[in-house]
Design a protein around this nucleic acid. Sequence first.
RNA 1: GGCGCUAUCGUCUAGGGGUUAGGACGGAAGAUUCUCAAUCUUCAAACCCGGGUUCGAUUCCCGGUAGCGCUACCA
Length: 490
Amino acid sequence: MSHPLHLAVSGSGPRVRFAPSPTGFLHVGSARTFIFNWLYARHNGGTMILRLDDTDVERNTEASVSSIFEGLKWLGLSWDEEYKQSERLELHRKIALAIFEKGLAYRDFTPAHAGEADRSGTQAAWLFNLGMRELSRGESDRRAAAGETFALRFRVPREAGQPVCFNDAVYGEQAKSAADIEDFALLRSDGMPTYHLASCADDADLRISHIIRGQDHLTNTFKHVLIFEAVGVKPPQFAHLPLLVAPDGTKLSKRRHGPVVSVTTYRDAGFLSEAFVNFLCLLGWSPKNDREQMSVPELTQAFSLEGINRANAVVNFTQEDPFDAKAVWLNAEHIRASTVEDLSARLLPIACQAGFSVDPGKMLRVTPLIRERIKLLRDVLVVADFFFVDHLAPYDPAELIPQKGDLAMAKKVLQRAREVLEKTEFKHDLLDAALRPAAQELAVKAGQMFQPIRVAVCGRKNAPPLFETLEVLGKETTLARVEQAIAKIQ
RNA sequence: GGCGCUAUCGUCUAGGGGUUAGGACGGAAGAUUCUCAAUCUUCAAACCCGGGUUCGAUUCCCGGUAGCGCUACCA
């Protein structure tokens, strides 16, 4: 692990954390949770903490850790403190022991997985493994000393018949009878803490004030409240987020839904991170003022827990259309809102990687011509390719034929265009002023004059405005391509 | 099965005891431009069902249904 730990406990505002478990790449749902936490921290002048919840040694991978950092880095939202649960095992064990010593937990010597079989039955057997809860302390100590392995389980106070309660900032007052909560594990038989224990121990120790996380943890929260109470710590404020689901209504998963659930897929497709953040924010949260396109500072300003919705949000995608249309539209909005300089700098590496011959100066001139014509950064490759290649890809000569015209007209137009272009300075307004009268002289409509030229220089009918395009392309390239077009229809 | 959560156009959402139920994406049509895009205009499109409460419920309450989540020595 090469990531530095920042242990400085800073600020006086709320302390929130994003606590992913490194068992896969950074998921869009996780990214949204991170973003909501970040927004809450920044809006309230609080502290954003990143904590790797890596207590499941079986499933954690180093690749996943770097993938998570890679995704977060792209989002461009920084955090203030960083921790790894696996480096805090002493604390977890200490807290587990304290709970045990208070009699609020007991050793369970049942072999792992032994109780799974009959848990689906109607009996209450799923709540605990028979016999273990009542083991005397002496007997328990004896068996432990004899080397028998055990899990440590929380002794849920079912007898009292009291409900466990908490107030959720999103879902309101929550209560659940302790009789419906099973004796969950705190420590595994290998001594490693479970998620519930490690998470609460760290949240208490790091003085987390607000836990903002997915709604899949809503029912777990009753267990967590029990742990906080057992430790003698006031539970943090909880705020559960509605889940992001696929069009089929199920939780997004790589196995079922493919790479669209990974943040890096959006990055690689040419989303601006700001647009992606913007899109995610609008799933399950609303500024309630009809605003949609918002910058990160604007989102920070507008964000509040009150705006969070309770119903799951569908990320709408299909096999053919892997990205939600609204995400794409928002991205286009952010692209159009970018400055030419900024957009150009983002486009340049993409074009270079694709093997186009570009330099910053040329991209700077091309960018304003395509800014309103691309939805994703990668679209530059199909929208502006003809600016960056020495030879146009082959096209059907029939494309040169103008509307309501024929091959003869195309030829006539191109030959005249060649003459005009040769003696015109390549400035878009001068080109306009020269080519428009030329059309009149030939008794063709302006569109009939421009279209063959456009196809000759762009290789296709749909392209940016002609005169600006010609100006960027330059006289030499333009004339060469017009010449080639004429040759095609000889 | 048990427990919990949720339910407004196809999707994201606003709203809320009396509204023409608002916006956005997407869709359709039109305007505009040298094509495309952008822009503008217009249109279609929703309160899950059943009971209550009420003069009046899409809104409040209850029930149903459906969906989701939890029910691991995963997180």
